[in-house]
């Protein structure tokens, strides 16, 4: 059951766009962070069910944040959201432990389908 969602992106507009794609009637608890370092701190505090992570951020990049989070919680479910989907970048984040990569700009239907898949994964884990 997805309850807590953490969105890590340095662009407030990107965070707004992502939130708007997520269903409003599921009672999700949203948490946000503006850079990778803040994202790691929030993760430790909140322990979200899903983390949406941008890659190019100041202070600490998405790559570094994924590595840090996965190091402390191997079960972390991190979905990378990026405009740059070059194979090298995708491979790198998946090797670091990301769950999947989504391409910006996001579409509502795509997010719905991802949430169903994640829900399924979480239920199997339980």
């Amino acid at each position: 059951m997805i309850k807590k969602i953490l969105i890590v992106d340095d662009s407030p507009i990107a965070r707004k766009m992502l939130k708007s794609c997520l269903p409003k009637d599921q009672g999700y608890e949203f948490h946000e962070a503006g850079d990778g370092k803040e994202g790691c701190e929030k993760y430790t505090q909140v322990r979200p069910d899903i983390t949406f992570m941008d890659l190019t951020m100041p202070v600490m990049t998405g790559y570094e944040a994924i590595e840090e989070i996965v190091k402390n919680d191997i079960t972390a479910l991190i979905i990378v959201v990026t405009a740059d989907v070059q194979m090298k970048a995708i491979k790198r984040v998946l090797d670091l432990g990301a769950y999947m990569v989504l391409k910006k700009p996001l579409k509502r239907e795509e997010i719905q389908s991802v949430l169903l898949k994640v829900q399924d994964t979480l239920q199997k884990a339980e």
Partner: peptide, 10 residues
């Protein structure tokens, strides 16, 4: 800024 980010990333 975000549109540019998306455009240039693509």
């Amino acid at each position: 800024q975000e549109i540019m980010n998306i455009a240039f990333g693509q």
